[in-house]
Every structure is written in C-alpha cells, then in structure tokens.
C-alpha cells in the first residue's frame, strides 16, 4: 500500500485527548476542537448571511430617508421613545444573561445555565410584548400601511394635540414608506426573536437534561452569537427608526 496516502495518522483521539471523548463528538471530525471551531466558523458565516439579509432593508431605509427626509422625521416622532428605550434595555439585559449562560455552560454549572437561559427567554418575551403594545398603537392610529393608512395626523397635527409642523399632503403620504420600512425592519427583527425564543426552549430542555454540563458548550456558544446578533440589529434599528432627527418637545 502506498504509505503517502494511507499512512497511519498520528492524530488519533486517544493520543490527543486525555479525557474521555464527549458523546456529542461527531465521528467525521478529527478532534473535538476541530468540531467546535467548525461550528463557530459556520455560525459567523450564517451571521454574515443575516447581515446581508438586513442589509437590503437598511439600504432601502437610507435611500428613502434621503428622499423623504421631512416625512421620515415626522413619522419617527410618532414612535414612542420611552417604549423603544425600555425595549433596548430589555434586549441588552437579555443579551447579558445570555452571555452569563455561556459562562455557566463553560464552568459546567447546570442549574445556573438553566436559570440564565430562562431569564433570557423571559426578557425576550418582554421585548415582544412591548413590541406588541407599540404595534397596537400604530393600528389604532391607522399608521399601518395599506388600505386603512391615514395621514391626517401628519397633515393636521394640531387637531390631534401634537406640537408638530404640519407636513404638506404629498410629503405626508410618504410617511407610509417610513411605516412600511418600520414594520418590515422591526417585523423581521421580531421574527428573528421568535425563532430565537423557540431555540431557547429547545436549549433549556437540553440543558435541563445536563447535555451542556460536561464541557460540550458549542450549541450554547453559537446560539449566544445568534442572540447577540439579534440584539445588535436592534441597536441599529433603535437609533435609525426612533432617535435620528428627533426634535425636542415632541
């Protein structure tokens, strides 16, 4: 046999690792480290995909914001900065507990891991709840794009008790573009949150069975990356949709 091709490979499991091989080690990886690196690398690539996914929306936002600046300013004033800020805090909090969860998995503390994951989930739900309140308000104000969209609040803000400069009717129509993007962007973000919460339930179940308490932390670590990414998207959405060009007194 040709020694170059099938020479016995030095890196066998027994020699490389003192400890017992993890049950989660997949046979097609040479080493556990290779498996973990591959997982992390794959997750980063997936996040790159996600960046491109949201990138399309951000590009549309920048374009229209440039075109319809006044409408975007007026419409963004209709968003509740208070609820947005609370949600930002909630999300950062949930990201913090997610990071603690990764730490708990690494130090192999099962109880803490489950606790942190549960808190992360709860905060995720809080975020979605607040988002629902915000969406509901838009519904009542007829700010959801489509047939029932109503611009009267922007054309005649005084009648609604708002201290806004009225928009010309044609510009007021463009607030619909803002709200289209608002719902598309926050909706896509919320969808990512919902998927994340679904995955969290699964991870909590597995963590409770002790799967991540023996040094196998890759799923927790990779989910953490995903969860932080979702946070970061919000960190971009919040200033772009709520904060920019907000003028005092509104």
């Amino acid at each position: 046999m040709d020694n170059a091709l099938v020479a016995s490979h030095a890196h066998t499991h027994e020699e490389e690792h003192e400890h017992v091989a993890l049950p989660q080690h997949c046979h097609h990886f040479e080493t556990e480290q290779q498996q973990r690196e591959a997982g992390t690398f794959g997750m980063w690539l997936f996040l790159l995909t996600e960046i491109m996914f949201f990138g399309g929306l951000f590009f549309a936002y920048l374009l229209y914001r440039n075109w319809y600046h006044d409408a975007f300013v007026a419409a963004s004033n209709q968003l509740s900065i208070k609820l947005g800020a609370i949600n930002t805090a909630v999300l950062i909090g949930s990201g913090y507990f997610m990071a603690l969860g990764v730490w708990a998995a690494e130090v192999r503390k099962k109880g803490l891991l489950v606790l942190f994951l549960v808190i992360t989930t709860v905060l995720g739900f809080v975020f979605l709840g607040i988002k629902y309140v915000e969406y509901h308000e838009k519904w009542e104000k007829h700010h959801i794009p489509g047939e029932h969209f109503d611009v009267s609040e922007f054309v005649n803000p005084q009648a609604y008790g708002l201290k806004e400069t009225p928009l010309a009717p044609d510009m007021a129509q463009k607030t619909q573009v803002f709200f289209s993007l608002y719902f598309a962007m926050t909706g896509m973000h919320a969808l990512h949150m919902i998927i994340g919460i679904g995955l969290l339930f699964w991870l909590i179940w597995r963590a409770n069975r002790g799967e991540f308490s023996s040094g196998y932390v890759a799923p927790i670590e990779n989910f953490g990356l995903y969860w932080h990414f979702v946070d970061i998207v919000w960190i971009f959405l919040f200033p772009l949709l709520y904060l920019i060009n907000r003028h005092p007194g509104s």
Binding site: A60, L63, Y64, W67, Y68, A71, I144, P145, G146, E147, F149, Q173, K174, Q176, V177, S180, L181, F183, A184
Partner: peptide, 14 residues
Amino acid sequence: TLGLGVFDPTKGGD
C-alpha cells in the same frame, strides 16, 4: 398581502 409600500410608486416607493 399587507400593502406595504417599499416598491410601490403610488405610495412613494421606487
């Protein structure tokens, strides 16, 4: 489905 206006010229989309 929902009537968003990102690409709809009648709503200001391009």
